[in-house]
Write a protein that binds this DNA or RNA. Structure first.
Lengths: 205, 205
DNA sequence: TGTACATCAGTGAACGCGCGTTCACTGATGTAC
DNA sequence: TGTACATCAGTGAACGCGCGTTCACTGATGTAC
């Protein structure tokens, strides 16, 4: 933060952080390059020393988001050991915690409409994060008899969709503004019922 | 569509439809009043005869969306009778079908970031639609013993979240670009497992 | 049926604005000797 | 330790653009008599 005068020192990262703040406030489409530049006290033209343009800046923000996301998921999963079930549930909670704590990253990742194809590094980060989720699903589904086991990728897609839906509909200002329950509860009970449906939890309440 | 010359005839609705097309293409933030006006062959200023501004136009699009959505849900639910279960599953399918068939409406409703409070008519339409979903949940949960019955609003929130998550992650170009399964299958199996978890479907596959 | 007039819907010009992007530039930093 | 020079990061002015919004206006439509 210390102004060293002419040279900023770490403008690139400062821009990413300013972009994240702006995204948090106004959404991924609602911020401009110039605003980000102004936020860090720099001329718009300076941005081009570090990024090809607006999209490139958002992509970098999203990339960093996937990094944090993946690490957080992995950490939560490991914390939950030795029970595969506990690990899985911890991962679900971590998902929501991430969305709450890093709203700018979350939006850059999931609501910016960036094409993954156009940003290979972003795609790589996203795939790595997704792999963590799938691994958790694989571990857990190993507890099911092989013949009743749904594909782990389907399993993790369900949980991911549920989590994402809870975030979008109930953890933000969106249409479900009057959220009927705390999102955390909603997600936890939802995952619970789902796991019971898979036979991973006893049918009794 | 017939040009009657000077007077358009039904400019208001034509603008809404142009807006929907633009939203489908570029997202709710990615279109401008001027574009919508140009799309129907009219001066930007003409828009102000019918709408207070851009947000008002989007709000009207969303409002119409909630109308269609609610009607579709209700129809699907009624079609599914007499089985509460069949009715519920039909409703789930209808959700996805709506998102597919009316992407502009869907985005205006769920991704535009409109404040429901600022648009009372929109809020009314949204509540009405939500009521349909809850009613379906109530009917279905009546089949459970009262002591094991989760609140219907939680129940419907779960299903809604799952549906929305599937739409956002797997039925659009978004991060899950390489959708592992057809969204329809994903949603159907997900709801199936969930209902089994509630005891509304037999535990065996 | 015809005429006069009120209402209405869209025009087109104008405004100020902030945007993205480019460019030659300059001041700061680092390094070779 | 000092000096000369290359490299680098950010400046500031400029551009053309499309935007939202306003305004007085005008042509079309509807209606009263």
């Amino acid at each position: 933060m210390s102004k060293q005068g002419y040279h900023h020192g770490n403008l690139r990262q400062a821009l990413v952080e300013a972009a994240l703040d702006l995204i948090t406030e106004k959404g991924p489409q609602g911020f401009t390059l110039s605003e980000a530049a102004k936020a860090v006290g720099v001329t718009p033209a300076a941005v081009y020393r570090h990024f090809a343009g607006r999209d490139d800046l958002i992509a970098e923000a999203a990339r960093q988001g996937y990094g944090i996301f993946g690490a957080l998921m992995e950490y939560a999963f490991n914390q939950g050991k030795p029970t595969a079930l506990a690990a899985f549930e911890a991962t679900g909670r971590a998902y929501l915690a991430f969305a709450r704590k890093y709203p700018g990253h979350y939006q850059a990742m999931f609501e910016s409409g960036l094409s993954l194809n156009a940003h290979p590094e972003l795609a790589a980060a996203a795939n790595k994060a997704r792999a963590v989720l799938e691994m958790a699903a694989v571990k857990l589904s190993e507890q099911l008899p092989a013949d009743k086991r749904p594909p782990a990728s389907m399993f993790s897609a369900h949980i991911w969709a549920l989590s994402h839906g809870v975030v979008e509909l109930f953890a933000r200002g969106s249409p479900g503004a009057k959220s009927p329950y705390p999102p955390e509860d909603l997600l936890e009970t939802g995952i619970g019922i789902y796991l019971r449906g898979l036979g991973l939890l006893p049918p009794d309440r």
